[in-house]
Simulated scan of single mutants.
Amino acid sequence: MSDIFSRIEHSRTADEVIGQIETLILEGVLRTGDRLPGERDLAQRFEVSRPILRDALKTLELRGLLVTRHGGGTYVADVIGQVFSKPVMDLISTHRKAAGDYLEYRREIEGIAAEYAARRATPDDIALLDAIMARMDEAYDSGDFEDEAEIDVEFHHAVGECAHNIILLHTLRSCYRLLSEGVFRHRLLVFTLPGAREELLAQHRAIYMAVKAGDPAAARKAAMDHIAYVERSMAEAERTGDWQRVSRLRLRQRAGEHELQRKRS
């Protein structure tokens, strides 16, 4: 975080500080839960007095963008979580149609994000994607489903950031929030399907390569194909789970019948 704050060039007022921090939050540089540097350090970076900084931070806190926690420290508030409130998230998690609608929406919006990313990604963006792709390869080699799923979300976050569209960025973040909150609990089942891990890795690599090559059409197609595959796989995983549940009940029932017959004989 040492390089994201810059000195206030002109009037050195609270409004200037407020504007810079708001922009960092809006552009996704500062994320929910990020801790700001201490008051003295931050005032030095902005080159403003500590009273001016305090006024700015207080205003941002009143606007709901920052929060001060017990034990000290100022953090970026949970502005993304307000898009899907807890009651709405609970409703989504208990209605099966919502999962399908969620993926249908993501298929279209992630296609746009990947297309924009291929057009607009900077060398720094590509360096970030390089690092995430390397970690994805490592997670695949380790065979840790939860680790793979976590990096999966991080990868899509990064592609959204590479699109350099503020509205798209925050819309996608609100979508991914549903994943990180475990609203779609059966999504990990996708990784257990035969060949799914290999296929998912190849699909992410196709998105990554298209963005890196600056090919918008290929990036959009790769992203949409990926979500379409996830849609099919989640449906299959859910059916497989149901089949396993029914098979297990049948087995228990048959075992019970055999035990009853044995006792009667």
Rank of each mutant, 00 (worst) to 15 (best):
M89T: 05
T68C: 14
A223C: 03
L193H: 07
V230Y: 03
G33A: 14
D130H: 05
V79L: 11
S49H: 08
D90H: 09
V183M: 02
E39V: 09
L91W: 10
S180F: 09
S11F: 00
M89H: 02
C162S: 01
D147N: 01
A114I: 10
T59R: 15
A218S: 14
G160D: 05
D137I: 10
G71H: 05
R12H: 04
A235D: 07
D225G: 08
G73A: 13
A206I: 03
A114K: 08
L260H: 12
L66F: 14
L66Y: 15
A131L: 04
E150T: 03
Y105A: 14
T122L: 02
K97Q: 11
E39K: 08
R248G: 06
I21E: 00
F46I: 11
R135V: 01
T171P: 01
E161V: 07
L188R: 05
T59A: 14
Y229P: 01
Q244A: 00
R185P: 02
G64K: 10
Q20F: 11
R107M: 13
A158C: 12
G19H: 01
V230M: 08
V48R: 01
Y75P: 01
F46A: 06
R239P: 06
Y229R: 01
L188V: 12
G111F: 05
E61C: 06
L200N: 07
I126F: 06
A131Q: 04
D101G: 15
V88S: 15
S233H: 10
G73S: 12
E259G: 11
V183Y: 02
E257T: 07
R96H: 15
E115M: 14
L169H: 05
R119M: 15
M234L: 13
R252M: 13
D137R: 14
L179M: 02
D242Q: 06
D34L: 06
Q253I: 07
M1C: 00
S180Y: 13
Y176V: 03
V190F: 09
Y116C: 10
R177W: 08
E108Q: 02
H186K: 09
A139H: 09
A202S: 12
L168V: 14
A98Y: 09
R120A: 13
T171I: 06
M234F: 05
